[in-house]
Amino acid sequence: MIKLKQLESLLQDVDVFEKPKIQFEQYPTSAHIASRMLYTAQSMYDDIEDKIVADLGCGCGVLSIGANQLGALYNFAFDIDDDALAICRENMEGFEIENMDLIKVDVETLSLRDKVDTVFMNPPFGTKTHKGIDMVFLKKAIDISTRAVYSLHKTSTREHIFKKAKEWGVSCEVVAELRYDIPAMYKFHKKKSVDIQVDFLRFAHPDDQE
């Protein structure tokens, strides 16, 4: 398995959004955070190697590409936006990844014939006009997976998420608390960027719990 440092430096070469679209909350997961999410998933839980992985809202693909570097069997990367998918494809080609495909879809309506093992995502947090999209992503991720879901959520929603996880029959663990620097792409933000508290969460399906 490659080292965390190596993974992080590889992921620094993943190109990011050219013209981020506000309505889709397009900001990339940093190589720093993405590498730690993925490294934890493989080294502590064996959730990547030889597993089928889905990336919901893949954007430019940093999570999928990282999962591939850690030995994922196959990767399905979903996004709603053509421009994001085009950049993702260039990244895939740059990394010479063969076992991965891109699919244009609204995660809200996505349905698959069979489940995947593990889902990685950095979902939109939801805006004034699109409230609750974070929970839509989370529910879908849990529905289409058999092992685990790795995701980032605002710390302010933690209690709500714990309640929902219980309702949905999955365990939920805060793997790390992060400070997340969201670029000020939103007009109502006066500062250059805003720092928010984010939880890195792991959800596990019952069969996979010790």
């Binding site: 709603i80 998918l85 494809r89 891109l102 699919i103 244009k104 609204d106 809200e108 309506t109 996505l110």
Partner: peptide, 14 residues
């Protein structure tokens, strides 16, 4: 298109 299946639905199909 461009190797990417478009699974988006129109509003009436959702």
């Amino acid at each position: 298109r461009d190797g990417i299946p478009n699974m988006l639905l129109t509003e009436s199909e959702v």
